[in-house]
Design a protein around this nucleic acid. Sequence first.
DNA 1: GGTGTTTCTGCACGATCGGTCAGAAAAAGA
DNA 2: TCTTTTTCTGACCGATCGTGCAGAAACACC
Lengths: 222, 222
Amino acid sequence: MKSDVNKTTRGIQSRNREEVTTRILVAAEKVFAEFGYAGASISRIAASAGIPKSNVVYYFETKEALYRRVVGEIFDIWRAAADSISVDNDPIRALGEYIDTKLDLARTRPYGSKVWANEIIQRAPIVQDYLEDELRSWTENRITVIEAWVQNGQIRPISARHLLYAIWATTQHYADFTHQITTLNDGVELSDAQWEDTKTAVKDLLLSGVALPGQDGVVTDG
Amino acid sequence: MKSDVNKTTRGIQSRNREEVTTRILVAAEKVFAEFGYAGASISRIAASAGIPKSNVVYYFETKEALYRRVVGEIFDIWRAAADSISVDNDPIRALGEYIDTKLDLARTRPYGSKVWANEIIQRAPIVQDYLEDELRSWTENRITVIEAWVQNGQIRPISARHLLYAIWATTQHYADFTHQITTLNDGVELSDAQWEDTKTAVKDLLLSGVALPGQDGVVTDG
DNA sequence: GGTGTTTCTGCACGATCGGTCAGAAAAAGA
DNA sequence: TCTTTTTCTGACCGATCGTGCAGAAACACC
């Protein structure tokens, strides 16, 4: 109502607001990941964002509200990553794309994955409603698709649910356990080539058991 | 020196000491898993163990020392679980046993797995020396074994390192993400039968791509 | 200019934290 | 029984936590 009286000035004001909130969200994702919910103090998030503590509270009224925003973002991103899992798509290609996308996210958004892992490990004290309202139905839909592929004889009769869990576990492992993987890589972060090797290896390992005997193209890129 | 003057009374005293320390360690493993390192207060651990806070500090001088003991335990248990990975053993059988054992541990010691996950997610601020001193050489040894199997033509030429990571990721997923899995199981914990199904499905998914074409017995029990 | 709104910040609060310490209680040794 | 050692506990300290709040600063609109 009042907000469209003057679009120009409002636009500038909104851009500032959005800019600051984005800075806070980026800082919060990192700090929540590195210190856990309890260990992530508002003052540490504020310091990471380069603003006073009170300003963080001004934009996100409570620590919990800020945390929910952070968790909600990674949840939405992960959901979109599974768009390829659809009955009309070729199973091996679709699952390969899903693994590729998840591994790209493991590299580009590792903090989000870590925040999610922490939240689930602690039994989702804050986002349990996400799990029950959205994750549950979303998961069942994907399982239905995979089971349809099995029914159509397009893939081997594997357990759709455990395949999904295995993909989640393996792809997120490269985000959540980055530090362990780096340590086992002589303390050096994975190179571009090593990330490509990872994609190939994960698809090979997980999809060889899914593809029909004699079927090729498991690890080829689309 | 002085401690073996009287073995009988010393024995009784030691048994009490061991009893209390065990109670503390059990409580600490659970509380560290459920609240993270920062969120796990000494008083909460003490309450869970049913003793005063001061008594926890008496046996484990600092919170960090107690935490190191907890992490060290799960680390040792996991190491022993991989004894089957030896050049002289049949690869598929050995890897299957490893997966079975890891999944049994996921069910019986889920808190230890969660504490480890939390520590790695937060970049091992306290047990980094474990990673560099013990995990690194241990891992390289296991990779050498798997690569020998490949050289001997006993399994397909997969990436030993990524296979190991996939096994870790998948088996530990059933411990660390128990709450998510339970929620997706209509809020009910996995039954005995469902855990058996899990073992079969995980071995099928991960080892089908490892076994030579036409090789059977991937999911059969030893 | 003046006025109202939004943005920002320093300060203060009750609560909880990890850890110290003196001393009680219990057990062991003589 | 008396002494010494070990085990246990409540009270306390300085630091940090999340959050409330009054007011300053910046901005938008007339």
